[in-house]
Amino acid sequence: MKQITKVLEGVGSVVQLLLQSLSYAGTLPRQGARFIEQCYMIGYTTLPIVAILSFFIGTVLALEAGYAMEGFGAKEFIGSLVGLSMARELGPMMTSVLLAGRVGSAITAELASMKVYQEIDALTTMNIPAAKILVLPRLAAVLVMMPVLIIIANIVGWFGGSVVARYVSSVGISPEAYFAALRHYTKFKDVMNGTAKAEVFGFVVVLVCCDIGLNTRGGPREIGASVTRGVVVSLILILVLDYFVTKLLM
């Protein structure tokens, strides 16, 4: 019972923070510097690791597909498998997981230490809502940067698959055949579905991590505990939401 109450409290707190932040949406044009700073943090600093990960996801997909499809004589369809898997599922999912680990943890740590060291209290006495200057620019930034990350992740992943298709002898299909299959079976709608999923995941990760950070109480140990909680809750929510959003977008 206590656990259920805690979960419901958490949901209530996140919804309240979301509504508070949205109520300050009109102030976003005046928060240009904060918005750009967050775009840099969420987008630019996450990009290298997203690119590396996506490349190797693409290579592994092509390798496994080559092995599995060889028996059916369907190796020329490897491009379609890599293309669809990256666009619809692995691109958004893995990018969101990286976002939770890299950006979510940083957001929770920053806001939790601001809370513990009374910086949030100082903002309250100044009548400057944390939802306005700390949460809103991050939510706006993640909405703008997630599609960019997803598109780059997809392109790099597809390219990774083509490298394996071309140079690994057990797969051994030409890049032309690989990309022809990819283009034929991967529709614009698939890419948009993946992007929409990533938007939902990214938004939820940032919102939940902000909420956990702002509700931290105690000292340095609790900051660490909040970071762990932020990442774990984000990962669980990504996996749970993945099913429902996929179902909704079908």
């Binding site: 009374q118 910086e119 006495t125 100044m126 009548n127």
Partner: peptide, 17 residues
């Protein structure tokens, strides 16, 4: 707080680091 300006000097400063 909009109507009465109130400021608190925190024990540890609480400056924005």
């Amino acid at each position: 707080r909009d109507r009465v300006r109130l400021a608190l000097v925190f024990q540890a400063g609480a400056l924005f680091n």
